[in-house]
Structure formats: C-alpha cells, structure tokens
Simulated assay, not measured.
Amino acid sequence: MSQLPPLLWLQAFESAARTLSFTAAGLELGVTQAAISQRIRLLEDRLGQKLFVRHPRSLTLTPAGQAWLPSIHDAFSRISEGTSEVFGATSERPVTLRATPIIQQSWLAPRLVALHRQKPHILLRLVSAIWPDDFGPEGADIEIRYGRGEWSGLEMLPLGDEQLLPVCSPALAGTLAAPEDLAGHTLLHAVGFGVGWPGWLQAAGVPHLEADCLSLSCDNQVMTLALASQGGGVALTHRRLLDQREDLVAPFDIDVPSDERFWLVRPSKRQVRVEANEVWEWLSSSL
C-alpha cells in the first residue's frame, strides 16, 4: 500500500488522460491547470516514466500511459461501486466554503444558520484558513479572504470598508478613560495585519505610548480577542466584529481605517454548480 502514489495524483492522471487536457482536468477537479501539471510531474517522477507527450497545444498519452489508464479507470470504478454498495448511491456533493476562523464565528455563522433553515437541501462543508497561502491551489467553491484584493483569477465582492479599534473586557474598560491610560497595559497584536497598534496609536494622538506598554503577539485574531475577553490585555479588532461580541467593549470610540478588508471570492473560470451559486447569491445578498 505504501508504494501507491497519492490519490490526488491518480485523480489528476485519470482526468487529464480522459480529457487530454490539463486545463480541462483542472476545471473538472476544481484546481488550477498548474496544480494538475505539478501532480502529473510528481506522478511521473514517482513512476520513473513519462505518461504524457506534451505538445505546444495538446497532449497525447505515451505507451506507458495508454497501458496504465485502463487499470486506473477500473480502480476508480470499483471504488465508486463499493462506496455506493456500502453507503448508498448519491450524487450530492457539499458546497465547500473556506474562511478565516474569526469571520466564521462573527459574520458567517448567523448567515449560515438562516441559509440552512431556508435551503436545507444544500450540503455545506466549512473549512478554516488563516493566511492567504492557507487557501492553497485546491480551492473551494467559495472563500472569504482578508487582504487588499490583489488576487488573480477570482470573482471578488468586498464585505465593506473596515475600521479597527481597541477592545477589552468590561472590567478593564472601566479603568480606561483616555488613550493615555493604556500605559502599563498589555497590547495584544494579531500579526500580519496591514494596520496594527502603531497605526491606531498614531490616530489617537499617542504615537509613542507603545514603548510604555507590554506586548503579546498571536498569529490570529481569534486568540487576541479571547485573551482580551479574559482581561489579558487590549486587542484591536474590526468594528463589524465587535457588534457580535457581548464579552468585549470598546473603551474609546476612536478607530482607524484599513486598506485591507474581507472579500467574498470564488474562481472566475470554474464552472459553478447550482448549489454553490445558491450559496454565493445568498451571501452576496447579505453584504
């Protein structure tokens, strides 16, 4: 069993061999043409033989590829038949929705509850990602990303402008009457944001106060807000996210605009399934 190539490589070969196109295989499997090409190259390296002859505008199978393809077809057919026999035949496939954990908790969760009540026939699969690289080449039917929108090959809708402001527990907020009162307290940093504490302190008129504060950094906003809610310091968050929290308050009504924002995105060239389009339209209507 350990000698078998990874299933993703075999899927790429089967689809590309059937369509004689890396681009068509990518559309079928929901990944980029480059991802298919890479998987085929890794598969050929593993097997020690070329499977395709790459022409300028087309593909053909090598003799080895032609000889191997029937076995791959038979293997996938047996897997499909066995799955239907054990679990029942079904053509349903969930709509994969990928988002950062913080937007899942705050913005997405109530909308998905309403979606499920009105459209219970749609199967959903929710996947978490923090950084843009985490979204990866595999893709999802729909994603919610955070950034400046500088991604190619995607249809994008902004969730709106973003402003960041400090938040903390109600008890700690009671001791903070002005930005100067942050001195001696812990500033909770979520790394990777274009606008952070230096930008907010500048806007609040106390740019040098950071030197008088303690510091704690996390790689995601979920953790900074969790620490802030427990009295562990003061975090920056998006104003839209504060509306969904009862355990956090804003001690100052001073915010700073960000050129980054949350985006609803989906691949622009992939054929869209009916269910995935229903989810897209539902989320788009709530922007």
Rank of each mutant, 00 (worst) to 15 (best):
D45Q: 14
T90E: 07
W9V: 12
A89Q: 13
H185Q: 13
A35E: 08
S152C: 09
P198Y: 05
R54G: 00
C168Y: 03
Q49P: 10
L242A: 12
I130S: 13
L176Y: 04
W107K: 04
Q230A: 14
T90D: 04
Q244N: 06
E92K: 15
Q11S: 08
G65P: 09
G48Q: 05
G231Q: 09
V234M: 03
W151V: 12
S84Q: 13
R261L: 12
G149L: 06
A250P: 01
L20E: 08
L176V: 07
P6W: 00
E138K: 14
H208W: 06
G26Y: 03
T62E: 01
L227A: 04
R145F: 02
R266K: 14
L112T: 00
E14H: 15
L182M: 08
A67W: 06
P120S: 03
R240L: 07
Y146I: 00
G153I: 07
G231E: 07
P6K: 06
A34G: 14
L154Y: 13
Q33H: 14
G48Y: 02
I102K: 11
I72H: 11
W280N: 05
D161N: 14
E162R: 12
Q66V: 12
G88T: 10
R245Y: 03
W197L: 03
P137D: 08
K269C: 09
V86P: 00
P56A: 08
P166Q: 05
H208L: 14
S286H: 12
A173P: 04
L61T: 10
P120Q: 08
